[in-house]
Every structure is written in structure tokens, then in C-alpha cells.
Design a protein around this nucleic acid. Structure first.
Ligand SMILES: [Mn+2]
Ligand SMILES: [Mn+2]
Ligand SMILES: [Zn+2]
Ligand SMILES: [Zn+2]
Lengths: 144, 144
DNA sequence: TCTGAAATTGACAGTCATTTTCATTTAGCC
DNA sequence: GGCTAAATGAAAATGACTGTCAATTTCAGA
């Protein structure tokens, strides 16, 4: 659950006092993410907020979701059609099982996969590695 | 190296004789892919062909690359920005180790990972699953 | 070699997610 | 309350990709 939006020191340098502000829009986006369980696109979250009465400009929803994912507060993955979808996740390293039809998401862990990725990277002389791993399919509900 | 573009039986039914034809455009796209070693976008391949003198319409390059990847003759992955990039790969199922600096790509296989993906999918009742797995890092050349 | 039906091409317009612009509003510090 | 940088959001722009369709090309059969 995410209650605070964007965490960063309010002051970086006495000369220019920069700060991230708490707004009703950011609170609304964070609340929507907390209520929604599955990966959702920016447009879906925007629509959700509109239906809910907490209308937020589409541009602001885009900006807020991007800031949240940059801060590591939400997970973002690319759907198979290339669209970005967001979800509040656990903080530990994990991957996802995502339903192509309804978006239903299950977090999965695979220590063996992590070790494999590290060893194959090392064997090929790669450093500073990171990886993406997502499984798409039809959840039991959507499998008919 | 890809020399033939699109393989399919020329006749599926005597009523409607369907067939995939060999054209200079498809040959040119296949040749470009054979010459290029790393993942490239449709626009990059279109530009490459133009510079090379074998200009092919952008729409045709899009169609040809999509047909090639649908046929399994080339690999396609989504870049971080959601753009599709293509590359000639081996025919067996594999994944990639991609240098985020120079684009250098190494094909890797991980039977254990495949089994893990299948079992975790089945355990959660997912069907029709597919997965994406890419490792990004710095190749030995780019690691300083 | 000739012919014609079906496949292909490509210029152009359309779609749609995402970004940019910028005038207006707002949060937070005094 | 006043001030100012941060934030908002409506509207326009961007850019990857798709749809359309008239013109062109392939190739199987005559
Ligand atoms: Mn992992
Ligand atoms: Mn695999
Ligand atoms: Zn589902
Ligand atoms: Zn490199």
C-alpha cells in the first residue's frame, strides 16, 4: 500500500529550495493504485479516477505514474502491445504472471532464475546486469 | 543468414490457391537483417535500405518484419520505450544478453528457466503462456 | 511467351499512446 | 496574507504503427 507520493529530501541545496509537493491529484493516483490489484494502464487509472469522482488530468496521471515508478514505489511493465502498465508491488525482487485478458497478476519468485541470470551474464563477461522477466497468459478465470 | 523470406505451402486448397511471393522488397529486408547483427527497429532498417540504394516503402518494411517474426524467422523484442526491434536469431527457443551501451547481443539458453516458467504458470492455473526474458548489461568491451 | 487473378506495394491518411507547451492554479514557506 | 517555484491540465504536437486503395508485380497455367 502506498500512502505517500514521491519521497525525496525537500531541500537539496540552500540556494535553490526544491521540493516535491503533496497534491490532491497525487494522493488520488496513489489511492487508485492501492485499490487496484492488477497492472493498469495510465488511461485505465485516469478513467477509474474519473468514474470515482476524483477526476485528475490525463497528463498529470501520466506524470505521476512515471514519477512513482522512477522512485521505485510502483512496478511498471510493458504489455505485449508495448503499453506501460503500473501496479503496487512488494518491495522484494520478483517477477509477474500476468493475464493477457483481464490483467490479473500474480507475483512470483524464482531464486534459481536469478542465479542463472547472474551466471550466464558472468560467463559472457557482462557487468552491471539487470533483467526483465514476465510471463503472460490466460488466468484460470479467463481460460473459459 | 536468411535468404528466403516466408515459407508456407504455395497451395492450401485447390479452390483458392494462396501463396507467398518472392519480391525484391522482401529480399532486400532479409538481406539487411542478415547484414545487421544487433536488434534494429523498423525505421532503422528502412533507413539502412534507403542509404544502401535498395529503398523499400516504410509500410512494406513494417509488414515484412512482422511477417518474418510471426513466421519465427526473426526475433523481436520490445525496447524499454516500447518500440519493436528485430534481429536474425537461431531457430531454437532462447533469450538475450544485450549490451545497453553498444547493443552487442548474445543468445543464451536456460532449460531450467523454461521449466520454471511452465511450472509456475501451471501452478497458478494459467494457460496459453508465453514469456519474455532479457538480460541487459555492459559487455566486456564496454565494461572499460 | 502471354495472360490474368491474386498477392504485393507504397503513398497517404488515420489511430492512439505518450509528450510538449504554456497559461493558470496551488502548495508551502515567510 | 503574500510570494514563488511546483504542479496542473487543456490543447496541440509527436511518433510508431495500421488501414485504405489504386497501381504494380508475381507466377501458375495456357
Ligand atoms: Mn529476477
Ligand atoms: Mn524462455
Ligand atoms: Zn484473466
Ligand atoms: Zn557493449
Amino acid at each position: 500500500m502506498v500512502t505517500t507520493v514521491m519521497v525525496r529530501s525537500a531541500k537539496v541545496h540552500p540556494m535553490s529550495s526544491l521540493g516535491v509537493r503533496s497534491t490532491k491529484q497525487r494522493t488520488a493516483v496513489a489511492a487508485a493504485l492501492a485499490e487496484l490489484d492488477d497492472f493498469r494502464s495510465t488511461q485505465e487509472i485516469h478513467e477509474y479516477l474519473k468514474d470515482r469522482g476524483d477526476s485528475v488530468g490525463l497528463t498529470t496521471v501520466y506524470r505521476t505514474l512515471q514519477a512513482l515508478s522512477a522512485a521505485g514505489d510502483v512496478d511498471v511493465i510493458l504489455r505485449e502491445d508495448g503499453e506501460s502498465v503500473y501496479r503496487v508491488c512488494s518491495t522484494s525482487h520478483h517477477h509477474h504472471l500476468v493475464c493477457r485478458q483481464c490483467g490479473h497478476t500474480v507475483e512470483v519468485e524464482g531464486p534459481a532464475v536469478e542465479r542463472w541470470a547472474d551466471s550466464v551474464s558472468a560467463a559472457n563477461g557482462f557487468t552491471s546486469v539487470s533483467h526483465t522477466l514476465e510471463i503472460f497468459g490466460l488466468c484460470s478465470n479467463c481460460s473459459h
